[in-house]
């Protein structure tokens, strides 16, 4: 019934349908990536665009000795190592708790968990900075003091800032929670029934049925949590302006160079380093995914 010329025709229709994305990809993704690389080989500055000259790998040579660059890179990776697993575990835990059908109004609870993720960045920052403020805030007054815990030192100290970053990352789990919840609802009921008959407890069922079945969703959540740390914004916009580096130190540093000094060449160099880093991490993740992500047979 479907001969090859018919298939070719359908192929052309499909190509036509994806054309807008394809053009967008070429103009807004591929061309800028190449342009960024070319910029990074020049001393291009927005303030004097006519004085552009080719300087080869000089930007990269400076970058290697740039101490700020190394510290923000280490800071970013450190942030990723702490917040990404924490976000994922927290989202997974909440999604698992709320997948129990006997909970009354669980859809409402799910909405409440998602709520912080739709609050604009400025509101989130106002709320948390106010909440943890050592003099007027509630954290010390209502939580730390009554529980006999040491007072929170305020967001300006090193440890205070890190703690705040961790708390803030827990308010960003919305997309991961949404994806994991959706995946858990899609797990076939028969699998649970069979396990129940065999006498499996809830923890056993979670580890041996739910997690393998939803592993593609876990993988996707992992990717989007990770990209947030590198200054991307997938499904969620939590940044206020380009100069607030609360989510990603390296992202902040690029913005500083780019908008503060207007030196696009050097900024493009850092962006390319970050780009390569993300690619390496992504390839590594996709490689390991072969071992723990289970793809259903189409």
């Amino acid at each position: 019934m479907f001969n090859s010329s018919y298939q070719a025709k359908r192929g052309r229709i499909g190509l036509l349908l994806i054309t807008p994305w394809l053009i967008g990809f070429l103009l807004l993704k591929l061309a800028p990536i190449i342009a960024s690389f070319i910029f990074s080989l020049t001393d291009f500055n927005m303030l004097k665009p006519q004085d552009i000259s080719f300087i080869g790998l000089q930007n990269y040579a400076v970058l290697v000795r740039d101490e700020t660059m190394w510290s923000v890179l280490v800071g970013t990776i450190g942030l990723a190592v702490i917040t990404v697993p924490l976000q994922l575990l927290f989202a997974l835990l909440l999604a698992a708790l709320l997948s129990n059908e006997s909970i009354i109004g669980r859809n409402f609870y799910r909405t409440l968990i998602f709520l912080p993720s739709i609050i604009p960045g400025i509101a989130v920052f106002s709320v948390w900075f106010g909440f943890v403020d050592p003099t007027n805030g509630w954290l010390n007054q209502l939580i730390m003091e009554p529980l006999g815990l040491p007072p929170y030192p305020g967001p300006n100290s090193e440890s205070g800032r890190n703690l705040l970053l961790i708390l803030l990352s827990l308010w960003n789990i919305g997309p991961a929670f949404l994806i994991l919840s959706g995946a858990m609802m899609g797990v076939p009921k028969e699998l649970y029934e069979a396990a129940r008959v065999d006498g499996a407890g809830p923890v056993y069922r979670l580890i041996n049925i739910t997690l393998p079945v939803i592993s593609p969703a876990i993988f996707f959540s992992l990717l989007i949590s990770l990209i947030t740390v590198f200054g991307g914004s997938v499904l969620l916009d939590r940044n206020i302006s380009f100069s607030s580096g609360f989510q990603s130190p390296v992202d902040w540093y690029i913005a500083e160079i780019m908008f503060g000094k207007q030196s696009l060449g050097y900024a493009a160099g850092i962006a390319w380093i970050m780009f390569i880093l993300v690619i390496v991490i992504a390839i590594y993740l996709f490689k390991t995914a072969d071992r723990w992500v289970f793809y259903p047979v189409d």
């Binding site: 990809f25 800028p32 990209i227 696009l264 900024a267 493009a268 780009f275």
Partner: peptide, 24 residues
């Protein structure tokens, strides 16, 4: 696969040239 790749693309790498193009 390329489409999925663009999801995890860091934003700054495309922002720098587009910023220049849009403004200048």
């Amino acid at each position: 696969f390329i489409l999925i790749g663009t999801i995890i693309l860091p934003e700054k790498i495309t922002l720098i040239p587009t910023y220049f193009a849009f403004i200048n």
